[in-house]
Design a protein around this nucleic acid. Structure first.
Lengths: 171, 171
DNA sequence: ATTACCGTTGACGTGAACGGAAACCAATCT
DNA sequence: AGATTGGTTTCCGTTCACGTCAACGGTAAT
């Protein structure tokens, strides 16, 4: 019981909100990491329901996943990630601030900034894909050389093996 | 003069050998990094000509580039890289040790180990390529959504713009 | 011979990205 | 009521991958 539901806390959109432990499990991170990311300004949970308990929205969870990918797949530092998400953030902030207010004459500019940022990101990704592709080709080439060397070795061994039995066996 | 050439030092294959500074410049690393990598067992320069001066072969330079790619493109730690290069290393060591000696019956095994290691590496690379590809697709989708939103916004603005000037000025 | 340059070996410092423990709330289970 | 669970802040510790500095040595040119 103790129906603590329906608290209009910061904003009462009925999105399910995650506690930090749930968030951690769903994203595969630790609570510590989530707090740290918040500390350096990468995350902004609804924070502090009643006591000081953080609550995360689904958007926040998406964001966490996004950050993780920028970190793991592109090898960006958290500072770089901060920059990458900057335009996206201002866009979101303005979007919330002007909820059905102005005709949004400059929101368009923000949006275009975000679009541009996204495109440079895609470009970085493409470069990386290319470089990794080249690297893979090199590895494949190495593999081919080694396999060629292997058949040579096998042949040499086969040539030398019959010595204890020089009469040759056709089968 | 002081023709210090032709010193049969460790082995006198006439490969050009690089000093640590040259190596650093060619690979874009620092001397410190090269020493550090040696310290943790990733590199093994011919070392110590006369005094304690390191000299690197071309093979070593290739190796450095390889390590850099494993580090940057795949995000492996130096410890992981150490593991990845392990089979390759033993192969090389055995290859040097048995220079035209045995018919190499078990060298084949080493070679096959190296081939296997290379294949798992290629697999890791492929997985990564796939994940990055998915990530890129997500980013592209985001971009599409934002662009769609943009045309909406432009339409809204165009609808609302005429209000301050209802009389319409064609010029 | 002096200077300049490049190298060497320690040893300690550093920034990034957290880990972990202490001391303390708040809700929940038994 | 007491214990458990899961959250909070604060602060210090840690790992990785080097950076940096001191003290020193060999080689080459001036």
């Amino acid at each position: 019981m103790t129906d603590t539901r329906a608290e209009p806390d910061t904003r009462a959109e009925d999105e399910p909100r995650l506690r930090i432990g749930e968030m951690a499990k769903e994203t595969g991170l630790t609570s510590r990491t989530l707090r740290y990311w918040e500390e350096i300004g990468l995350l902004r949970p609804v924070a502090h329901r009643g006591s000081g308990e953080r609550l995360y929205s689904l958007a926040e969870r998406e964001r966490v996943v996004h950050i993780r990918e920028l970190q793991d797949l592109l090898g960006l530092t958290l500072a770089e990630i901060h920059d990458v998400l900057a335009s996206e953030d201002t866009l979101e902030r303005v979007r919330r601030a002007t909820r059905a207010s102005a005709p949004t004459p400059k929101r368009l500019g923000l949006l275009e900034d975000a679009i541009a940022a996204n495109e440079t990101l895609v470009q970085r990704i493409n470069e990386r894909l290319e470089r990794i592709g080249e690297f893979r080709d090199q590895c494949l080439a190495r593999g081919d050389r080694m396999r060629a060397r292997r058949v040579d070795l096998e042949a040499e061994i086969a040539d030398q093996r019959p010595r204890p039995r020089p009469k040759g066996r056709p089968g």
